[in-house]
Design a protein around this nucleic acid. Structure first.
Lengths: 161, 161
DNA sequence: CGCGATTAGTTGTTGCTACAACCTAGCTCG
DNA sequence: CGAGCTAGGTTGTAGCAACAACTAATCGCG
């Protein structure tokens, strides 16, 4: 448990830090350009598109998207204005709000998914060998154990993007 | 070259996407809390602290930090206001601006580095075996080749954080 | 059954980032 | 040598995210 990182650790960290900076920017800019959506917007719509009845409670959606409720609330508001989803009070629990994908929202996901997946392929998956893909899975999993110890959001790890 | 990802690829991507969301947030919040600095602010100061005379031209600093000049300009302006660095015209090229770390800036880096490195250790390095650290280096490198094909910013990969 | 604590969500403000417009200094080539 | 082009930066604006304050509904427990 030294304070500093040794050379090999630095090499890994510096590269990871660069990926952390560049990859989200690349994903965002492709989706913005081709679908007028941020990556987070897309992710929200994608999660809804896979949910039963294309509907989820705000809290559930927040967990799936790794976001705070406050952030999600703002985003959902904008997406609702654009007609991509709609909100309605949850019948079982009057505190809760449900978000449901509209037809237009479904279509938006269908249209934009191929381009997004292609970007993920080009920049990540196709850059790696199958062994590296497996290694990456384990590495990311180990990091997530530290970042999210109680696996509160474990659900997401089973799901598609 | 299919359109979709297979199960193993999805597993890797979903986890990486979660890391991309959570890790920067974790780094930012530690530095904000303990040093009133964003991770990007810290990185800027750290790069200057290692440069000859603690001075760099804006363009060079932008490359090292993987940022646009516009973004850097705003950040440097704020850091200058806080007295952590200073700007002055470059004597050799009158178009250019140099940024130099002040004493206060140096001290800020010295104070905050251990806490930051500890966070990187806790969440990343110490979560991985030495083999995984090596694997991560290669994986991140492969991804960076796609994101940054001409290696315009290759300099950074040699440096410490 | 009623009062405090918790859960669910919204909204306002502030700060950072992206994008585009702009300006000045140096370079290049007829 | 000067007209246009490129390089190096700055600034303004608009949009998204973090944080904190707030409301309303429900739970829990004496």
């Amino acid at each position: 448990m030294d304070t500093w990182l040794d050379e090999k650790q630095k090499a890994a960290w510096v590269r990871l830090a660069a990926v952390l900076e560049l990859l989200p920017a690349a994903l965002d800019s492709q989706l913005r350009r081709d679908a007028q959506l941020t990556h987070f917007d897309y992710f929200v719509l994608a999660m809804l598109s896979e949910a039963p009845n294309r509907t989820l409670r705000m809290t559930a959606l927040a967990e799936l998207t790794t976001a705070t409720l406050a952030r999600l609330s703002h985003v959902v508001q904008r997406l609702e204005t654009r007609g991509l989803l709609e909100r309605f009070p949850c019948p079982e629990d009057k505190r809760a709000t449900n978000a449901r994908l509209t037809g237009a929202g479904w279509q938006k996901v269908a249209e934009s998914a191929p381009g997004h997946v292609a970007t993920v392929r080009e920049n990540v998956i196709d850059a790696l060998s199958p062994e590296q893909v497996a290694q990456l899975t384990d590495i990311a999993d180990a990091i997530l154990h530290r970042l999210d110890p109680d696996r509160a959001r474990a659900a997401i790890y089973e799901r598609y993007d």
